[in-house]
């Protein structure tokens, strides 16, 4: 089973305050930690679990600047065989479809039985790359995958719908599956893994190596960001202030007054 996993290096804003840049077209990222996109962490785990069971290779691919190699190293430390980073100045502006075009150029002549990627990225949240990539490659896909059972030449996958409902579909391989969080339990990176990862190949590829130019990639983008702003609150909570003990006492009074205690 040869598997390609497309991953993204993203700023972790889950617990951080987000500050918008002066040009209003991005956020300030200097003080933010960068991590592997949460959905992709499950995708690389799923690929490595399959490799451990069935043999074959796992390749991690990203479109990102040099810093993104931290995410590829993480994939290598977890058990990917080699990795590829594609980048050119200007790709910061690329949207999900533009990234899918770059990935398509890099992957189309590679050997694979399966391509996995996260359902979406935690930063831009397009949820486009995997399904668009499948269409560009002319192979089937399934999005929001929560379970994969491999059969001979196909896979039975569970797709997550709303309200906990799942849709089961059988898809012929090769295919692209976009992975939903919770499909497995991503492993920790071991010291041994990190050591082994140093010896693994990390190939750096530019757009010209793929026969593409930055201009043509950016021109294919579907969206151009005009302005970012902090969402105006629909309403704003009354903020209860004071020491933890004061706060707790005030909440108790509120609960009593509403008959909740």
């Amino acid at each position: 089973m040869d598997i390609i996993v497309c991953v993204k290096h993203v700023p972790d804003t889950t617990e951080a305050e987000v500050v918008i840049r002066e040009d209003q077209r991005g956020i300030k990222t200097e003080d933010l930690p960068y991590v592997i996109n949460e959905w992709d962490e499950y995708a690389i785990e799923e690929a490595i679990l399959m490799k451990e069971r069935l043999g074959g290779t796992v390749v991690a691919v990203t479109v990102g600047p040099e810093e993104a190699e931290a995410t590829l190293r993480r994939c290598l430390a977890k058990g990917a065989d080699w990795a590829m980073r594609i980048w050119d100045e200007g790709l910061e502006e690329a949207d999900g479809f533009a990234i899918a075009k770059v990935l398509h150029a890099a992957i189309k002549d590679m050997k694979y039985d399966l391509i996995l990627t996260g359902t979406q990225a935690g930063d831009d949240g397009y949820a486009v790359v995997g399904v668009a990539l499948a269409e560009l490659l002319g192979i089937p896909h399934a999005a929001l995958v929560k379970k994969i059972e491999l059969k001979d030449g196909s896979a039975v996958v569970h797709r997550e719908l709303e309200g906990g409902l799942e849709e089961v579909v059988e898809v012929r391989l090769p295919a692209v599956f976009t992975i939903q969080t919770g499909i497995n339990e991503p492993r920790y990176v071991s010291i041994m893994g990190i050591k082994r990862a140093r010896k693994k190949e990390l190939r750096v590829v530019s757009l010209s190596d793929l026969g593409l130019t930055v201009d043509e990639v950016l021109q294919s983008s579907w969206l151009t960001i005009k302005r970012m702003y902090v969402p105006p609150p629909k309403k704003q909570a009354v903020i209860i202030q004071g020491s933890p003990a004061d706060v707790a006492a005030q909440i108790v009074e509120i609960l009593k007054s509403k008959g909740l205690m």
Partner: peptide, 21 residues
Amino acid sequence: GFGMDLAPALAVQLGLPLATD
């Protein structure tokens, strides 16, 4: 769950732009 499985592929096939979510 339906639209996310459908829309990007439809857009690529038709060469039309898609804005998601």
